[in-house]
Design a binder for these strands. Structure first.
Length: 297
DNA sequence: CTTGGGTCCTGTGCGC
DNA sequence: TGCGCACAGGACCCAA
């Protein structure tokens, strides 16, 4: 799934086709993704002007201007594990397909793929939401009360904001017996990290994923904050990581996966010069963790 | 409250 | 080549 860098990459890709533009057509090909879509979802999108496209954690947020009796509302999109968004330019009959990636059908005369669930069309492009596993979700919610939405209300600070700092993280880890890996995946503690970037951040900070969260001295908590920041920042610059599903909105590939130090590198040598260790893979709460037993303590 | 396991769903890649 | 199984970037929900 898309973690924060992938969602941010998608946000940047779709913004030009949505911001300041009017939704002239919307299609929902099924009534639900992970949960039921809102009542009359497609109809309620039609005619609305998109004021801005932002991101909170792994959620894409499209702020919609009021229309008629509808107040200002925000379209909330989560990509789940395999959700993908493609921008198909209205003028393109045969869109570019870099990397051999076939863009989902969207424009007139093209057949939609079996998992192309939602399409949103402006005068600039058609935004196609594809999600084979359907772990993703969409909702429409009054912008005025956005912070109260059940999916957003309990999220911790954005990892790239000043609110995520050593003092905050130390307070949230204090006394925790769960692993540091589980704590960093807990979206209430810090919002937007997933399995890949937690593994990579722990490597950078030299912290074993199975250490008790509450066992880190403040200084090392500070190292972890720095590591989270640097890995996310670099991943965003690289356009995210493409394993299976993630694509930039134009269909091209993110390339941060070429810079993974540990994720998916079980048995391979540690990248730290002179280390000589091998990357280990363990399971924690049902998910794979990768780390260097020599560098990470 | 915290913690870990089960769950939703489909596709892919591996071993046999 | 086919089959079955494990696993996949998430996170809600629930039992203990």
């Amino acid at each position: 799934m898309p973690e924060l860098p992938e969602v941010e990459t998608v946000r940047r890709g779709v913004s030009p086709s949505l911001e300041g533009r009017v939704i002239r057509r919307a299609i929902a090909r099924r009534p639900d993704l992970r949960w039921p879509l809102p009542e009359r979802f497609a109809q309620r999108l039609k005619g609305r002007r998109v004021a801005a496209v932002t991101r909170r954690s792994k959620y894409l947020l499209a702020a919609l201007d009021p229309l008629g009796r509808s107040p200002a509302e925000t379209l909330i999109v989560h990509l789940g594990m395999a959700g993908r968004i493609a921008v198909v330019k209205s003028s393109e009959t045969e869109p570019e397909t870099p990397g051999g990636f076939a863009l989902p059908a969207a424009t007139a005369g093209r057949t939609p793929g079996p998992h192309d669930h939602v399409e949103i069309e402006t005068d600039a492009a058609t935004i196609v939401y594809t999600d084979a596993r359907r772990f993703g979700s969409m909702d429409l919610w009054p912008t005025e009360r956005l912070a109260e939405h059940r999916l957003l209300a309990r999220l911790g600070p954005e990892p790239l904001s000043p609110d995520f700092n050593a003092a905050h993280l130390n307070r949230r880890l204090d006394g925790k017996s769960a692993s540091i890996k589980a704590a960093l995946l807990d979206q209430r503690i810090v919002a937007g990290l997933g399995n890949i970037y937690v593994c990579e951040a722990l490597f950078r900070a030299g912290v074993r994923p199975d250490r008790a969260a509450g066992s880190l001295p403040l200084r090392r908590v500070g190292d972890l904050v720095d590591a989270v920041r640097s890995v996310l920042t670099e991943a965003i610059e690289a356009g995210g990581s493409t394993l299976r599903d993630h694509r930039l909105a134009d269909g091209s590939l993110g390339y941060f996966q070429t810079r993974f130090a540990v994720y998916g590198r079980a048995e391979e040598p540690c990248v730290r010069p002179g280390c000589g260790g091998r990357v280990a893979q363990i399971r924690q709460t049902g998910r794979s963790s990768f780390y260097c037993p020599t560098c990470q303590r």
